[in-house]
Structures are given as structure tokens and as C-alpha cells.
């Protein structure tokens, strides 16, 4: 005898209900993700003295206002310097480390890899404290800018390493060998062949490292000095005493620039660089 699959009547409404639930929850959570960003941007355009949502009227006054705020301009400058220098240091180390991981073979390679990724393993706040602890031991609090460079370069190495590593692994060894067989020295080979091939990885890594350093509170909070407040740390302490919309304007400016960097990453290496951890 043969068996037939019978269509169960109760399944149809169930499927429809499932669809509604699925799309409903996706919409809800996407709104959740966007809410703080959107609310901040929208309220930054308020014309009122105090921050409200929805905003009363439309004006750019808070954007003009923040351009006159000393603490904003100086801390922005500090943050840009710290992020640039630490990203540069991390880039050099990450390129070297990626080279070792893709092209060299040795016994301690596993340990080397773990060491390079260790800043991801150790909780950021613990590293911040540990670094601060050493700074205090050696009485180096005065060199807070230098401390920020160094500490941020340490934690951003693994963030840069990932995209550079994968772009280097994707570069065929035979390209480098071809260049050498044609008479290029290892130095020339690196700059003419390898570097252009891994440039997208370096750009993506540098953007991730730069934004990490620029955004960081966890480590900077231990290391900033009175003259060297970074923007997020300064913003954090100013928000409490600022009921107007100037923090919203500053935050919106940061969001805007972050968005630009985000799209550069999307164009160069794609969003997959965020995928591994």
C-alpha cells in the first residue's frame, strides 16, 4: 500500500503567524538598534535651550555652538593625535606579525599567534588598570599622551592583524617568488608586490583601529591627564552638566564621520572583517 502526505489544515495559519512574528521581531529589533542613533541626531537639530525629543523647531545653532567650545576642540585634537599615532604604531607591528604568521614556519608559532591576539583575551578594563598600575610604579603619569599612544597601540594590534593577515594569506606566495625571479630584492618585492596586495586589509584594519582608539573610554579613563583629555572621556564628564543639545551635536558629528569610515570599509574589504572574533 502507499502512503500519502496529507496537508494539515492547522499548518497554514501557523506559517502565516510565523512569518508575521519573524518580520515583526526583526523590525522591532532594528528599530531598537537604530533608536539611540536616530534620536540623538534628530534632537541635535533642536532650536530650544534644552534637549527635547521630538525637537522643538529646527536649527543648526548647536553645531555652531560646539565649534566655539574649547573643551570640545582641544579634546578632539587630542583624540585625533592619539588615534593617528597609535594606529600607525599598530600598523607596523600588525604587518610584521601577519608576515610571520603567513610566511614563516617555526615551533613557537602557536604561542606567537596567541600572544598577538592576547589583547582580545585580556579584558580591556583589566589591561587599562594593569597599564595604569605600571605607570604609577614608574611615576610616568605626566607622560599621559605617550601612555595613550602606547596603550592604544597594544590593544589595536589584534584588530589590525585580522584583516591584514587574511589579505596577506590571500596573496599567493608565487607572486612574490615571480618578482624575485625577475630580479626584485625582498625589499622591492614587499613594496611593489605585497604591499599593494594587502593595502585594502591595511586600510580596513587602520580604520577599525583608529575608531577603536578614537572611541575608547575603558583604557583612556585610566591614562588621561588634566591637559590630555580625549574626546569621549571629556564628553562623558561634560554630559552630566550639559542639559542643552551640544552633546547631541558632538555625538552626531562623531556618528557622521564613523558612518563615512564604515562605508570605506564596506567598499574596500567588505563587512566580513567584523565577522571573526
Amino acid at each position: 500500500m502507499t502512503y500519502q502526505v496529507t496537508e494539515k489544515l492547522w499548518e497554514k495559519p501557523l506559517i502565516a503567524l510565523g512569518r508575521v512574528f519573524l518580520w515583526g521581531s526583526v523590525c522591532f529589533w532594528l528599530v531598537f538598534v537604530l533608536a539611540p542613533v536616530v534620536v540623538t541626531i534628530v534632537s541635535s537639530f533642536t532650536a530650544a535651550e534644552f534637549l527635547t525629543f521630538p525637537p522643538k523647531g529646527f536649527s543648526l545653532r548647536w553645531y555652531f555652538r560646539v565649534m566655539e567650545l574649547d573643551w570640545f576642540l582641544t579634546s578632539l585634537q587630542t583624540s585625533l593625535i592619539v588615534a593617528t599615532v597609535s594606529t600607525f604604531i599598530a600598523t607596523v607591528f600588525a604587518v610584521l606579525a601577519a608576515r610571520v604568521l603567513t610566511r614563516h614556519r617555526f615551533r613557537a608559532k602557536g604561542a606567537f599567534e596567541i600572544l598577538m591576539l592576547s589583547p582580545l583575551i585580556i579584558p580591556g578594563v583589566v589591561f587599562g588598570f594593569a597599564f595604569f598600575n605600571v605607570v604609577l610604579q614608574f611615576r610616568l603619569e605626566g607622560l599621559s599622551l605617550l601612555n595613550l599612544f602606547v596603550a592604544h597601540s597594544v590593544v589595536t594590534i589584534p584588530l589590525m592583524l585580522r584583516p591584514i593577515w587574511s589579505s596577506m594569506a590571500g596573496t599567493e606566495l608565487s607572486l612574490e617568488e615571480a618578482a624575485q625571479s625577475l630580479g626584485a630584492t625582498p625589499w622591492t618585492t614587499f613594496w611593489k608586490i605585497t604591499f599593494p596586495m594587502i593595502l585594502p586589509g591595511i586600510v580596513a584594519g587602520a580604520i577599525i583601529a583608529f575608531t577603536f582608539s578614537f572611541n575608547d573610554i575603558t583604557i583612556a579613563i585610566f591614562l588621561v591627564g588634566p591637559e590630555t583629555q580625549t574626546l569621549p572621556v571629556q564628553l562623558m564628564s561634560q554630559i552630566e552638566y550639559t542639559p542643552d543639545a551640544s552633546p547631541a551635536a558632538i555625538t552626531s558629528i562623531i556618528i557622521f564621520f564613523t558612518l563615512i569610515l564604515f562605508f570605506i570599509i564596506d567598499r574596500t574589504v567588505g563587512m566580513d572583517v567584523f565577522a571573526q572574533k
Binding site: T40, P232, T258
Partner: peptide, 21 residues
């Protein structure tokens, strides 16, 4: 894009947004 973008946002920025909400 919506899900991943906040990856790059500073904690202060997000926290400020949540304070507003």
C-alpha cells in the same frame, strides 16, 4: 548595515542616545 554599524560607535555616543530615550 543597520546591525553592524553600531560596532564602530563609541560607548559614549550610544550611552548618550539611551539617556535621551
Amino acid at each position: 548595515v543597520i546591525v553592524i554599524f553600531p560596532f564602530l560607535l563609541s560607548a559614549v555616543v550610544r550611552a548618550y542616545g539611551w539617556t535621551v530615550i
